[in-house]
């Protein structure tokens, strides 16, 4: 079977490589030594009208199935023959909703272990995209001039990277907390200013920090109030006072027994099916 597949693969490389509609396939290998290739499926990045995308139209190439050993620098190097590359972003999945990305702190968001990823490559000019679509490959991730670390080499360098500088961490924490404190102080000042001041329709906002604090508006608190009400009502009720109440309690007891009996019967049935009554 494998042999047949190899033949088929060989034939494919001579002819057109099958690719999904709208995409073109570029074979990619780790290095010369490998026999089989993975395929990058690439197309121009487009979004439906009305949706704004952070990637510039026309100049962005969308790539599927980027192998785990392929980094951003490496993609940039591989695609630079098609035209100057402005930026490369690797992601776990294609992102649909757009949100501006903040640079993540390396202290609080350690690098995840890469799997197969998708990439958005932004070229300087739209011509880069069309050149990339026509690439034939196979692309080589690791070459002699640009060796790519993998295996033991990569884990050792990852370990080295994971030993971080505490001073840098301290600096980052300090600057974050400074900004945070400032923001909180501003909010508080604003709240204080608004306290007790009616808005244009005459409503006064009641806050926790007011002169007369009110119940916190949490779910737990409101549930507590309901529970207390219920208990109060239950205390007033009389049990087994009227004859009908008595009758009903008895009936309820019987119903409980019946239900238990049915449950037990079901369990027995199941145990019998599992042959649980064969002692040895």
């Amino acid at each position: 079977m494998v042999a047949r597949r190899r033949k088929r693969a060989a034939r494919d490389s001579r002819e057109e490589i099958p690719s999904p509609p709208g995409y073109s396939a570029i074979p990619i290998k780790f290095s010369e030594k490998q026999q089989a290739c993975h395929y990058l499926y690439v197309r121009e990045h487009r979004v439906r009208e009305g949706i704004t995308s952070s990637w510039p139209q026309k100049r962005t190439l969308f790539i599927l199935n980027v192998p785990p050993y392929c980094t951003e620098e490496c993609l940039s190097r591989l695609l630079s023959p098609c035209g100057p590359v402005r930026s490369v972003e690797l992601q776990e999945k294609p992102d649909l909703a757009e949100s501006p990305k903040e640079p993540k702190s390396k202290f609080f968001h350690p690098k995840p272990v890469p799997g197969f990823q998708v990439a958005y490559v932004v070229f300087q000019k739209p011509s880069g995209v069309s050149a990339a679509l026509a690439l034939k490959g196979p692309l080589l991730v690791s070459t002699e001039s640009y060796p790519m670390k993998s295996g033991i080499q990569k884990w050792i360098s990852d370990y080295t990277d994971s030993v971080l500088d505490p001073e840098a961490l301290r600096a980052e924490v300090d600057s974050f907390m400074e900004a945070y404190d400032k923001r909180i102080a501003e909010e508080e000042a604003k709240a204080k200013e608004e306290d007790g001041v009616p808005d244009e329709e005459g409503w006064v906002k009641v806050t926790r920090r007011g002169r007369r604090p009110v119940l916190p508006r949490t779910e737990a608190a409101s549930l507590r109030v309901l529970e207390r009400e219920k208990r109060k009502r239950a205390r007033k009720e009389l049990l087994n006072f009227y004859a009908w109440q008595h009758r009903e309690t008895k009936m309820e007891h019987l119903a409980q027994l019946r239900k238990k009996f049915e449950e037990d019967k079901q369990r027995i049935e199941l145990m019998r099916a599992q042959r649980k009554f064969r002692p040895y």
């Binding site: 494998v2 597949r5 693969a9 780790f30 490998q34 026999q35 089989a36 290739c37 993975h38 785990p68």
Partner: peptide, 8 residues
């Protein structure tokens, strides 16, 4: 792509 995966 089993062959490529085995090489991976």
């Amino acid at each position: 792509n089993v062959e490529a995966i085995l090489e991976d």
